[in-house]
Design a protein around this nucleic acid. Structure first.
Length: 273
DNA sequence: CGCTTTGTTGAAAT
DNA sequence: TATTTCAACAAAGC
């Protein structure tokens, strides 16, 4: 499940390969056209034709190809993968879109679950405005987190998953950050103490940077490049660790349901109140 | 077959 | 009315 560190890993892998390439058009298979747009395929191609890729960057969980004028965003959702080499024959059926570059070079979007989407935006700011602060930017701070949590009344888990609140966190890193800070996922944001907020503000960037350094977490299906897995799975403290002993207090990690999401926590370290 | 996964959407609840 | 929560959705593997 690609979240901020996994998407960053893909972006860092793609950037040197794609910088300076010219985009020709995007094509989709006849039996599945949902992966591209908005805008419509016709408009999409009219917009991108001949534009040069000036930058490859990440915003929230999106891979963004910044072109001369607008930009193309790629959301991997659950199982999306970006390939820059011709896929194997048996992988061809999962290619839901192809971005055609010059000289027979293509970007292939392979997506078994087909939740992934590729969109075009006329301006970077249109896309930028959709998301909250980047946790690895200077817009994120203890002060911001404190003010933002105390000024609303939401459960911490869904709050941190809300991309408009903070960008890039998903199920894995929210569970890890809340365990590190000793905060129960059901805690109300306005009830957090300064000490808890301070711990959380430290934990979020620390965990994300640490994961990026190891190329992200390969839990089920995340790979970048052709078949390279991330190595952060070995550092996980609670995600997928139900039934094992808490690294801090030896209590058994449990998996519960919070806001319709599978949620991993230590009942001792993370108090409800 | 039902459950799981993600983020968006629109409806419902507070 | 604004804020917050929830169910539905899209798709396929196990």
């Amino acid at each position: 499940m690609p979240e901020l560190p996994e998407v960053q890993t893909v972006v860092d892998y793609l950037r040197p390969e794609l910088l300076g390439e010219t985009v020709h058009k995007v094509s989709v298979p006849a039996n599945y056209k949902r992966a591209v747009g908005p805008p419509s395929l016709r408009t999409f191609n009219k917009c991108i034709a001949g534009q040069v890729i000036q930058d490859v960057r990440r915003r929230a969980k999106l891979i963004v190809l910044v072109l001369d004028k607008g930009c193309i965003s790629i959301h991997l959702r659950m199982t999306g993968r970006v390939l820059i080499n011709e896929p194997e024959q048996n992988d061809l059926r999962y290619i839901t879109a192809t971005i055609e570059l010059g000289a027979g070079h293509n970007i292939y979007f392979k997506d078994v679950r087909k939740f992934g989407r590729i969109k075009y935006h006329n301006h970077w700011s249109d896309l930028d405005a959709l998301y909250g602060p980047e946790p690895l930017s200077d817009r994120f701070s203890y002060r911001w987190l404190k003010d933002s949590c105390l000024s609303r009344d939401r459960m911490m888990k869904p709050l941190l998953l809300d991309q408009q609140f903070i960008a890039g966190l998903g199920n894995i890193y929210v569970d890890e950050a809340l365990w590190t800070a000793g905060i129960h996922p059901c805690r109300t944001s306005s009830s957090l103490t300064s000490d808890e907020l301070r711990k959380l503000a430290r934990a979020i960037p620390r965990i994300l940077r640490s994961s990026i350094r190891l190329n992200g977490t390969t839990f089920q299906s995340f790979y970048f490049g052709e078949e390279t897995p991330g190595r952060f799975a070995s550092q996980l403290k609670v995600f997928g660790k139900q039934g094992t002993a808490c690294k801090r207090c030896k209590t058994e990690i449990v998996k519960v349901r919070v806001a319709q999401r599978g949620t991993h926590l230590c009942p001792t370290c993370q108090h409800v109140n």
